[in-house]
Computed example of a mutant assay.
Amino acid sequence: MSTRKQLKALVAARRGVLVPGAFNALSARVVADLGFEALYVTGAGITNMWFGLPDQGFMGLSDIADHTARIRDAVELPLIVDADTGFGNALNVRHTVRTLERAGADCIQLEDQVAPKRCGHFSGKEVISTEEAVSKIKAAVDARQDQDLLVMARTDAAAIHGFDAAVERAQKYAEAGADILFVEAVTREEDIRALPQRLAAPQLMNMVIGGRTPIFDSRQLTELGYGIVLYANAALQGAVAGMQKALGALHNDGVLQESAGLVATFAERQRLVGKPALDALEIRYA
């Protein structure tokens, strides 16, 4: 079964599949190695980790396409790819979908913010008109070459126009052809519980550690009927914490050993990047 068909089946099952974010090929390898069933190519993670900048629209199409292609080569999991606002109008969205589909995306996420976008859990967001957003979703649906490629529509309208307005927008995006709906930055527990009852299409719920949305565990969200439970930047936050601990110890002590338990072993690092398999190939082709 193709990764796109796998993802369609996962979403349709509505069993709250846990999907962590990856910000490069090695983090994607860790996600796959731990047994997760899909991963999210995170725009915030790429912006933070590669540019050292906040998630405020600094990532471009070529950046996310390059990372998607590298991650596609590294793992065989279904890839949900964060395409921000689609990088322009409906025609730009068409080009974005074509580009990311070629790069190996299995689902492309588009949001309705005004460009330059910002993290869904930041203040100061603005959204485009519902009509413009609908036209961009239609363009995305029409642009895909493979009908198994999924389109996810995200709305950030709850922070600007309120929860009911966000639900209304999401419904219109579903009518425009979106396969998955994503209402971002829901701030009340009762609204998280209500969403699967108010929208028929499969939905993603974003669990942002330290963000504005109350944290539910995946079992609760499965019982509510969510298809995907996203932890877009858990790996990033864990990596930053790990770097701070390891380098803090090095700075304080002047030495760092594997036995301290603060770093992956040399052997584990080589395993994750596939060195044993490449060694075998080197012998085969010698």
Score class of each variant (00 low, 15 high):
M1N: 13
S2L: 08
T3L: 04
T3G: 06
K5P: 02
L10T: 06
V11Y: 05
V17L: 00
P20E: 02
P20W: 02
A22Q: 05
L26K: 06
S27W: 05
A28T: 01
A28V: 03
D33F: 09
T42A: 13
A44C: 08
A44P: 02
N48V: 13
G52E: 07
L53P: 01
P54Y: 08
P54K: 08
Q56I: 15
G57T: 02
G57Y: 07
G57K: 02
F58D: 04
M59T: 11
D63H: 14
I64G: 03
R72G: 01
D73C: 11
A74G: 01
L77A: 01
I80R: 05
I80F: 06
A83W: 06
G86D: 05
L91H: 14
H95V: 12
T96H: 09
V97Q: 08
L100G: 10
R102F: 13
D106P: 09
V114G: 00
V114T: 11
A115S: 14
C119H: 07
C119L: 11
G124M: 04
E131A: 14
E132G: 10
A133D: 02
S135K: 13
I137D: 00
A139Q: 00
V141M: 04
R144E: 04
R144I: 04
Q145M: 08
Q145L: 07
D146L: 03
L150S: 03
M152R: 10
T155I: 07
T155M: 11
H161F: 14
F163K: 05
F163Y: 14
D164K: 12
A165T: 11
A165L: 10
E168T: 14
R169G: 08
A170K: 08
Q171C: 11
K172N: 07
Y173A: 00
A178C: 09
I180T: 10
L181H: 05
V183N: 03
V183P: 06
V186C: 06
E189C: 09
E189P: 09
R193P: 05
A194V: 04
P196W: 05
R198Q: 14
A201S: 07
N206S: 04
M207Y: 05
G210Q: 07
R212H: 07
T213F: 00
S218D: 01
Q220W: 01
T222I: 01
G225A: 00
G227M: 01
V229N: 00
A235V: 03
G238R: 10
A239D: 08
V240D: 08
V240A: 13
Q244W: 15
K245R: 15
A246V: 10
L250D: 11
H251D: 11
V255Q: 14
Q257N: 14
A260R: 15
G261M: 13
Q270N: 15
R271V: 02
G274Q: 11
A277N: 09
L278C: 00
Y285F: 12
A286S: 14
